[in-house]
Amino acid sequence: MLTINMHDAKSQLSRLVESLESGAQDVIVIARNGKAAAKLVPIGEPDVSRRIGGGLALLGQFPSVSLEEWNALDADVASLFENGTESDHS
């Protein structure tokens, strides 16, 4: 929980809201004259898609692929880039 004074909250409102949306902060308390006056909280679930590793939260664990399986795709990927014969590249 972050506590910030009123003046700083006014000048940094966008940054404070971003920290709530990203999940970096779950509650931000705004103080006036050193006393808590208001509380900022996110409306919904934090957007974990913008976090490092957020893909795991959205998609779940990815299946593991062996090196041989990964390398077996090389020919398919190369054919996507070649798109025809060598004469097409001149």
Rank of each mutant, 00 (worst) to 15 (best):
M1Y: 02
L2Q: 03
I4R: 01
I4Y: 03
I4F: 00
I4G: 00
I4H: 05
I4D: 01
I4K: 03
I4A: 01
N5V: 00
N5P: 05
N5S: 04
M6S: 11
M6Y: 14
H7G: 06
A9Q: 02
A9E: 03
K10M: 07
K10I: 02
S11Q: 14
Q12S: 10
L13K: 03
L13W: 02
R15M: 04
R15W: 02
R15H: 04
L16R: 03
L16E: 03
V17L: 02
V17K: 02
V17C: 02
E18S: 10
S19L: 01
S19I: 03
S19M: 06
S22G: 11
S22P: 01
G23L: 00
A24D: 11
A24H: 02
Q25W: 05
Q25P: 00
Q25M: 08
D26C: 06
D26T: 12
I28V: 08
I28C: 05
V29A: 07
I30C: 04
A31I: 05
R32E: 15
N33W: 03
N33A: 14
N33R: 11
G34D: 10
K35Y: 07
K35C: 06
A38D: 09
A38W: 12
A38N: 08
K39F: 08
K39N: 00
K39E: 00
V41D: 06
P42S: 06
P42M: 00
I43V: 14
I43R: 15
P46W: 05
D47M: 07
D47S: 11
V48Q: 09
V48M: 13
V48L: 15
S49P: 05
R50H: 11
R50Q: 14
R51F: 00
I52K: 06
G53P: 05
G54M: 04
L56I: 05
L56G: 03
A57C: 04
A57N: 06
A57Q: 07
L58G: 07
L58P: 02
L58E: 14
L58H: 10
L59K: 12
G60Y: 04
G60A: 05
Q61G: 00
F62T: 12
P63H: 05
S64Y: 00
S64R: 08
V65W: 01
V65R: 07
S66N: 01
S66P: 03
L67I: 12
L67K: 15
E68K: 13
E68M: 09
E68N: 11
E68A: 15
E69G: 04
W70S: 10
W70Y: 14
N71L: 15
A72R: 15
A72P: 08
A72S: 15
L73I: 11
L73M: 14
D74I: 07
A75T: 12
D76M: 13
D76V: 15
V77T: 08
V77L: 13
V77I: 15
S79K: 11
S79H: 07
L80G: 05
L80R: 02
F81T: 02
F81H: 04
E82W: 09
E82V: 15
E82S: 15
N83K: 08
N83G: 12
G84N: 09
T85S: 15
T85P: 06
T85F: 10
T85W: 08
E86G: 09
E86M: 13
E86A: 14
S87Y: 01
S87P: 02
S87M: 07
D88K: 13
D88F: 12
D88C: 11
D88L: 13
D88N: 12
H89A: 13
H89Y: 09
S90F: 08
